[in-house]
Design a protein around this nucleic acid. Structure first.
Lengths: 230, 230
DNA sequence: CGTGGCCTTGATAAAGTTCAAGAGCCGTGG
DNA sequence: CCACGGCTCTTGAACTTTATCAAGGCCACG
């Protein structure tokens, strides 16, 4: 007897959208319910991947580390988002680290049972293809940012993204610490701090701790899209 | 009557590996044979994608441009390699530009017919998933390089990669111009040139034009993996 | 033999990182 | 309730890396 709780969660996951109900139950029967504390590692770069994960609640960050310990965050994943799929289709080893940012609940789907299901359900494959495509698109953006924009431009883009994610409201909260933000933007906390200060002084934003208010969205757009200088 | 030439090429493409023969013919019947001159654009960022492409011969580069015109190359694709797939599974628009580096022959596969085939052939879906996964892995590397390594480290990594690709021989040729190499490494030709000069002076490599000989592979490894300085 | 492309080299400037110090904040425990 | 230690964040100054600008060399091709 499968916990109906698990089925309910699975039904709400975009990756399993449009699947017939009995498949949801199959999935529930292979899912392994896992709980992690804030800071715990789900997997490390190079680990063998024997399946993939979907976040139920909480948040996971995927990141790379340099020799000196500098961190580059590749993604944050929240409820409903899958991660670790690359290792099941190709290469077998995880290309980066995964760590829980909060206390987090995760379903783990073992590879073989899942691939079986994929073979029998084209819908599921197409969902998966769409997810990987979306991720590729995101990476394309990240590469563009890292190589073609300077840090103020990346920060500006991120603030505009946050505004969008908050329904277009110009007043919102940072959902991550500034150090994590630095790591996401491919820089260090000091640099982020200095840029925040400058943006405040120039009246582009008003920020206090994690509270951000965008005062001059047009200016942010110029910074992010046209390489304008601070 | 389908040109048997097309079928032959399709059969040799990894993406269609393990497909039954009659599907190869179906594919051949929907493939559109295209020819481009060196320098021609296949598609531009933002264009609507109505299908995807596979290189038959020649070479295509996928890249992003900054406002000031700086170029970041994301991939080079050669014979047998598909590109432009992201737009058919998600988002509809190409996230980057595609341009032919040489005179190039390409097969174009229209979206709908291809998705049809995907739905009926799990093998094809799994091939596709593997390809997208490989690409994600490559991007992970690219992001790591751009954000976590300095330019000498990236160049070192690229030289070691070239050596590997040449069956481990320490003497080989650059397959792209140094300007293109700069663009691939996320920097500018001047910087690449200076680093080559330094590596030569330090006896790490011996290079003359496009001919490269690796003299101290261990040193290259340190540069690329341990952040050692030139 | 001249012209255009690509590559090299040097001087200079900008952006970002490192190092170091200190401010603000919060939960714990005396 | 206050003091303490441990965070994260901020700020300043020196330094490193890389980009920019400018000039000149090399070579292939017409």
């Amino acid at each position: 007897m499968i916990s109906s709780d698990i089925v309910v969660h699975i039904k709400s996951m975009p990756i399993f959208k449009n699947l017939p109900s009995h498949n949801m139950e199959q999935l529930a029967s292979i899912a392994i319910d896992q709980h992690f504390r804030r800071g715990e590692i789900v997997f490390s770069e190079g680990d063998k991947g024997t399946g993939f994960y979907v976040v139920v609640s909480g948040r996971v960050k995927i990141f790379k580390l340099s020799f000196e310990g500098k961190e580059q965050i590749l993604h944050f994943f929240g409820p409903g988002e899958p991660f670790g799929e690359v290792a099941i289709f190709e290469g077998w080893r995880f290309p980066a680290h995964a760590q829980c940012v909060n206390d987090t609940r995760i379903f783990f789907f073992p590879r073989d049972a899942f691939v079986d299901l994929l073979k029998r359900h084209p819908t599921l494959s197409l969902n998966m293809l769409a997810i990987l495509s979306m991720r590729l698109r995101k990476f394309t953006h990240l590469v563009e940012d890292l190589s073609l924009k300077e840090v103020p431009g990346r920060l500006a883009a991120y603030l505009l993204y946050l505004r969008e994610r908050n329904g277009g409201r110009s007043f919102f909260e940072l959902d991550i610490s500034k150090s994590q933000l630095a790591s996401l933007l491919g820089t260090i906390p000091e640099t982020v701090s200095r840029i925040f200060t400058k943006m405040n002084k120039q009246g582009i934003i008003h920020s206090d701790g994690r509270h951000i208010q965008i005062l001059d969205a047009e200016r942010l757009r110029c910074l992010s899209e046209e390489g304008e200088r601070l």
